[in-house]
Design a protein around this nucleic acid. Sequence first.
RNA 1: UCCUCAGUAGCUCAGUUGGUCAGAGCGGCGGACUGUUAAUCCGUAGGUCGUAAGUUCGAGCCUUACCUGGGGAGCCA
Length: 462
Amino acid sequence: MKRSKVKELLAAGKTGTDVLVKGWVRTKRGIKNVAFIALNDGSTVNNIQIVVDVANFDEELLKNITTGACIGATGKLVESQGQGQSVEIVASSIELYGACDPETYPLQKKGHSMEFLREHAHLRPRTNIFGAILRIRHAMAFAIHKYFNDHGFKYLHTPIITSSDAEGAGEMFHVTSFDLKNVPLDENGEVDFSKDFFGKATNLTVSGQLEGELGALALGEIYTFGPTFRAENSNTPRHLAEFWMIEPEMAFYDINDNMDLAEDFVKYLIRYALENCAEDLEFLNKMVDNSLLERLKFVINNSFIRMPYTEAIAILEKADKKWEYPVSWGCDLQVEHERYLVEQHFKCPVILTDYPKDIKAFYMKQNDDGKTVRAMDVLFPGIGEIIGGSQREDDPDKLGARIRELNLPKKDLWWYLETRKFGSAPHSGFGLGFERIMLFVTGMSNIRDVIPFPRTPKNAEF
RNA sequence: UCCUCAGUAGCUCAGUUGGUCAGAGCGGCGGACUGUUAAUCCGUAGGUCGUAAGUUCGAGCCUUACCUGGGGAGCCA
């Protein structure tokens, strides 16, 4: 008999037919003559109930059906006599695939703390909450590709190993094939990277943006979606050492087109989740954060506030609030400032633009005022910066001057600069942290719980 | 990296001014129960109190260092 997924059985009116399900036991309850098994196969957050007439089954088999065990069950799908479910399977036969010692199996039928589950990341996909999160994560990844494909963007694979250290996005992980106990040195006692695998020092990428621009200036619109690495010693619920980032890059987009895209894109993802992950979101709304659905709907139904940095500073200076970090034009906004704007002043996602050039990256388009650049940061409630982007500097002279001012290694960026020398074009792009949008969509509060196997300082288990 | 809180049974925690302080609930196991829903009821077994030093007649409790985790901050997506 062909295996049915629990999701199909719960959805379609197939009662009266014989079915086969395979999955993992969530709980078994019993009274003298009848036992009830709640079985989950990962296709949905909901379990299917298997009813077992104890008299018809081997006692030893039933004893082995414990929380966590893997079984296959055949039987007739019928309308349930009980209250908690519409249909159930009256078992005719059960096969035990893998027993699960209840004395040592870490997961119980009662709830566990997120911290405990994080230490059991190999088993936590079997919990309702992580099942829901991982299904949503899949749906979001799929929706990202669908959105860009539907809008004519090309998926560009930018390199994971890079030799450019110019972007300054953060500390990098070194990539080498050296024997670390015997690293070649040159005559000055420095590491001789000419003897390394690539003949130069290499690192794991901190961003695909610079290469993304090369693609955009040929294909028009591209996006990247891949792993990104930061060796920063960040210990917060919002940072990972290995995370996934989406970076669209578009020729002929100015900063306003860029904002329009960012807002439309994020709203699309949230709408996609609401339409395609309804059961999982309802589960999370019930178990994790009971204002989740309301918040998601609010975001897709309201326009983001757009405001230049300079105006935001004016609001913050007038705010009746004591800042731990004082506010003045030119300072970088701290978490407390961003939170005030998003969560108290506007109560809505905010896009801030036109930041002082001194606190932003070298590649951002310089405004005519000589002080600001066409940057945009999208700030979300509870999460902070979810997107960072800008129009890019397409004038080769201005870009070169900025690189000199900042003392960046121009020779390593020769290929980037040639795009401005040969057929330069106005263009823009941004980076969206995949796990940050996952935080928002799931209502989870720690980024380590929206990625299957988190990498953070002192943790690369699993 | 800085600030702060925490680490006691498989899990979540209680443990007073240092002196019956080795505890509870849940989970597990055994039993009862003619359809259960995180079932219920009865019974039962679990612990070098994060690690290492120190103070003291005596440390789960006080001191120091370290490890791990949470929260906040910085860096950012």
